[in-house]
Design a protein around this nucleic acid. Structure first.
Lengths: 246, 246
DNA sequence: GAGTGGTCTAGACCACAGG
DNA sequence: CTGTGGTCTAGACCACTCC
């Protein structure tokens, strides 16, 4: 533990966050190897000119990320590799964010419709309430289709254009419109492709498809998006990492 | 906010945890309705005879669970319904824990084999290292099969018997043997059933199956279990809730 | 301007792990 | 026994939101 961390008290970045970022970088770059003890919190605080609660807060951030483990009477250790680069919300970020980079997006339609029962229930609206429906195709570099994405949104949240959606991704647009996504609930299943679905996705009828339904909630717990998506099983899988609460 | 919380300083339960539990119960029972402001932290601390950091710690627990939202300059609010009862790690708990309750388990085999490449890579062992392989069938009340579960474990972790596995579930057994699960990494996909798989699961060949591969890690980041499982898409879906980090 | 959460300090005592 | 993290206190100043 002869690493040096530098804390800049003039920065607007919180001290605990400066420290946690530098710790994370050191772990990521292999300067802190798996199993390494971090040294006790009080010494660390003294060396950095911080108080112990501030150091604890920094460490807690990485414990929450699964990079460090605390053991009472022992110390704080770097976790034994592999639990890295979480890909955290692969599905959600890949679907909603996707800044028009790797996978291309083709917008099939943007329409105002009356919410079917399933959608109304998910969004907490009355059946038949007008909502916006967006259908998109996700493609690999303009070639093979990967997924058909169908999203429903309340009308008052934002306005959508084909150009925006093909350039920027739904998530960024919602964020720009002032909506902060906070949590989401997903259900992942599988089914055999119907003839229509197969045609849209360049598969054979009966081919296995992954299905995903998601409801996303903002800050206040309001449902701001419901999506029901289809993925070609031959081209896509959901990666996810989870921490287990004791 | 005329609720009364009682803090017992004689209890071994941490004060912040006593408070967070009572808050959670109040929310769960509808005594604190969605949207309710909690009242500022300093007053709350004063009323309870606690310090502000302790109250903050209690609130933070519920923020992490997605039950409360903090807004600077505004206050702390109860989230607008629906984001409740997370089903948190449905897949993992359902698969590993399963105290022999709802879904029945039939143990097909427990064998010592040499780790194939895929398993060795996941567990961080050399290819060909001896490992324990467990195959189980998950059934609804002894009738229809739901899933075929295949797990690989290092030999030194614990010993397994058919009786134990049908009664208690792998997760509990590992815990009893001193292993604390800490995090897991999963991949969820889909495929068409082969003839063999179809026969085991009472499906037609070609029927869609959900596939899941999982590597579970303990405290120290050591890989302690690798599983590759098949679920009948007609009977099973993964439910999961995730929080989004800003 | 008033009120809120966000951050930070400098201490303290306790519970648990290990030799 | 010593050393560790776990909890807790009583303050302080700041940044933000809303009126």
């Amino acid at each position: 533990m002869d690493l040096t961390f530098s804390i800049d008290r003039g920065s607007p970045v919180p001290l605990y966050f400066q420290l946690s970022q530098q710790l994370e970088a050191a772990i990521e770059h292999g300067e802190l190897l798996p199993g390494t003890l971090l040294g006790n919190e009080i010494d660390l605080a003294g060396r950095l000119g911080l108080s112990r609660p501030t150091v604890r807060q920094a460490i807690q951030v990485l414990v929450d990320k699964g990079l460090l483990v605390r053991r009472r009477g022992v110390g704080t250790q770097v976790v034994h590799s592999r639990v890295r680069r979480p890909l955290e919300l692969s599905s959600l970020y890949d679907d909603l964010e996707s800044a028009g980079q790797r996978p291309a997006t083709r917008v099939l339609s943007i329409e105002e419709t009356e919410a079917p029962a399933e959608v109304a229930a998910a969004l907490g609206l009355a059946e038949g309430t007008p909502v916006r429906r967006v259908e998109r195709l996700r493609l690999t570099h303009g070639e093979d289709p990967i997924a058909r994405l169908r999203n429903y949104l309340p009308l008052d949240l934002l306005t959508l254009t084909h150009a925006d959606l093909e350039a920027t991704g739904l998530y960024r647009l919602m964020r720009a419109a002032g909506t902060t996504l906070h949590s989401a609930r997903q259900s992942i299943g599988a089914k055999a492709a119907t003839a229509t679905e197969a045609a849209a996705l360049a598969e054979e009828p009966g081919a296995p498809l992954l299905t995903m339904q998601r409801t996303a909630f903002d800050d206040t717990g309001r449902a701001v998006e419901y999506g029901t998506h289809l993925y070609r099983a031959s081209r896509y899988a959901f990666e996810l990492q989870l921490l287990i609460r004791p």
